[in-house]
Design a protein around this nucleic acid. Sequence first.
DNA 1: GTCTATACGCTGATAGAC
DNA 2: GTCTATCAGCGTATAGAC
Lengths: 190, 190
Amino acid sequence: MSEEASNTKLKILELGDDFLRSRGFNSFSFKDISDELGLKKAAVHYHYPTKEDLGNEIINKAKERLKSFIASVDGTEKNEWQKLSDFLEFYAEYLQEEHICLIGSVGAEFYTLPDTMQENAKQFIASAVGWLTDLLELGKNKGIFQFNGEPDARALMILSNMSGGLLLARMFGDDQFSKIINGVKQSLMN
Amino acid sequence: MSEEASNTKLKILELGDDFLRSRGFNSFSFKDISDELGLKKAAVHYHYPTKEDLGNEIINKAKERLKSFIASVDGTEKNEWQKLSDFLEFYAEYLQEEHICLIGSVGAEFYTLPDTMQENAKQFIASAVGWLTDLLELGKNKGIFQFNGEPDARALMILSNMSGGLLLARMFGDDQFSKIINGVKQSLMN
DNA sequence: GTCTATACGCTGATAGAC
DNA sequence: GTCTATCAGCGTATAGAC
């Protein structure tokens, strides 16, 4: 039935997302996906004709995840400090599945990816930078954050801490990522 | 003659290093290398029997580069601030060749790599963390750096800034990396 | 929606001639 | 040291049956 069909499509997408962020785009294949789901490669191609299609849907899904996060946090009474803390936790959760974020997975192979994926990923990450920049600026104006320099430079620093931190955690353990999160928070207090 | 032979071997190594840090380990092939050098795949296999061999030599070369950097800086009158500044510049130079560092390139595909490469990369990056930690500790004790928290947490933060910053620079331009470098310096002054 | 069958180039790797 | 030849397997992708 059509419900199961769309269930397959969703499973493919989720598995693709898993593979992308655990191995990299060029290190998984449609066969990996079909094997894991107990079907044939052709079935995967039915749902996502090309790997580029799948890749873009994975990025689109990440955009939605970010949108959901923002909605879940901006529509509340939380102050800027709590929102930032939630944002950092959003990244920390990746560790549970041994994932890195799209900055790392897409960035490392950036020049090998189809143009549409490069553009799509840029948009996604730019919106994260934008939201974080606004948060930092507002929080600084309110006196909740203390830091020198421009909010957008700080946003880039924090995102590099998150993306780079997830990479380092793979080699040196999750506790190293915790140190980075604590360091980021500390850097906004003093 | 044997000089040209070892020249080929060196060219393969340098090209492999270039490919690894611009595309990723699973996104270049022996054919890419042989094509670029105007020879056949078999010739590449003669110098590096397996891709794993080549990969490990690339990492070994990175170890030497780091060693050279440290030697060039620790054997001088430079103070800790200047050494740190040189270290950050060491990363900034990657931008000229559109490279990322090994934390990014190896980290993103970490679980797909042979065990020997994973171990080798860990060693390399651990030694960078170690040197930077010592530098930060010494500089803090001398009053050259001002920061809260442990030196090793700071070292991880700075390395995540560098590795993540190189990834972000691919998407948003080299000037974004400059902002991060300035931010890192600022974070050690206030 | 999923299957079989097929296409064809690329992959890492080896054997043996020059 | 480099070559030709060859290998088995995998890569993305398509055509057409069920």
